[in-house]
Amino acid sequence: MPIRALIWNENRHEQSNALVRQIYPQGIHGEIAAALGEAGGIVTQTATLDEPEHGLTEERLENTDVLVWWGHTAHGEVKDEIVRRVQERVWQGMGLIALHSSHFSKIFRSLMGTPCALSWREAGEVERIWVLNGNHPIAAGLPEHFEIEHEEMYGEPFSVPEPLETLFISWFEGGEVFRSGLTYQRGAGRIFYFRPGHEAYPTYHDPIVRRVLGNAVKWACNPASAWKRVNEAPNVPHDKAPVPLEVKGPRLHADGEEGYR
């Protein structure tokens, strides 16, 4: 079965900025969908901020294997209940690809539990991206390094949790470096943060960047059934324990009663 990818984009720069609209006439989400279509084995849908429920209904998320997220200027407009809904699906096993300024998105910060802050500069610098593990599935088919002619600089320190893997490190023309490809796991869901993608530059037209996106979606897909009990915390009665036992002390809760949250 093909991987079901949903590309979410706030879609605000495309509406307000002529340069961004010229670079991405179908929206950033449309260009990413086209890139994933080239990868083979992936079917795509798109969703944007101004759709009802931000295009992220329960039904739609239930039928999504990997969610690709691009946001920048409107992080605060994403409703908290939708963030919790997406977070629950990641815990259950839906993959998440967070792109560029999505490091400050509500969903990424909630899953990381840290500020996710960094330094930055918009000067159209050369970005040289070094591949640290060429054998990783996300790096399949990549050279040992590649360059993006014009990009926004992100610099360390990047206040995120220690990743499972650091796949890419970027060097910028001004001298800064940045961990630009990081993997995480939260519950049953795989997460990949990928730095490039400033909206004022045609980064998502780059063939190597497009390959990374396709590889990342395939890596993040968990083919297992959703882990529906990931957020449950059942009170197991003493007589239902794997080895039956007697109650030996005082209790706050009756058998089967909900715990405190």
Rank of each mutant, 00 (worst) to 15 (best):
V126S: 09
G187P: 08
W130Y: 13
R179L: 04
E58D: 14
E62S: 14
N215M: 09
W227F: 04
A98V: 06
E257S: 14
H29G: 15
E173F: 04
T64G: 11
L19F: 01
P237W: 08
G76Y: 02
E199S: 14
C221L: 07
L67E: 06
E14C: 12
W8A: 09
E81T: 06
V212I: 15
E81A: 10
F172E: 01
G71P: 07
I28Y: 05
G71V: 09
N222D: 12
E144F: 03
Y154E: 00
S102K: 00
L182I: 01
L36M: 02
P143A: 04
E88N: 15
G124P: 06
I138A: 12
E125C: 04
P25C: 12
S101E: 15
W91C: 14
Y260I: 15
K240F: 11
G259W: 11
V78A: 02
I82S: 03
H198C: 09
S16F: 11
L19E: 11
E88Y: 11
G214E: 09
G55H: 03
E246P: 01
G259V: 12
D239L: 05
I32Q: 11
F158M: 12
H75M: 02
R12E: 09
T183Y: 05
A139S: 15
G181Q: 10
L61I: 03
V209Q: 04
G214C: 13
L111C: 00
C221P: 05
P137I: 01
F194L: 14
I191W: 03
F178M: 14
L111S: 05
G181N: 07
L96P: 05
P223G: 05
D50T: 09
E10V: 00
I42Q: 04
Y260E: 13
E144G: 13
G76I: 00
H29L: 06
F178S: 12
F172I: 06
N63P: 09
G55I: 04
G197W: 01
P250V: 10
P163W: 07
S102V: 02
V160D: 01
L142W: 04
Q22V: 06
W120T: 10
S110R: 15
R261S: 13
T203C: 10
Y184C: 07
F108A: 00
G40R: 08
C221R: 12
P237T: 05
A226L: 13
G95M: 02
E31M: 11
S225A: 15
P223H: 06
K228N: 11
A35H: 03
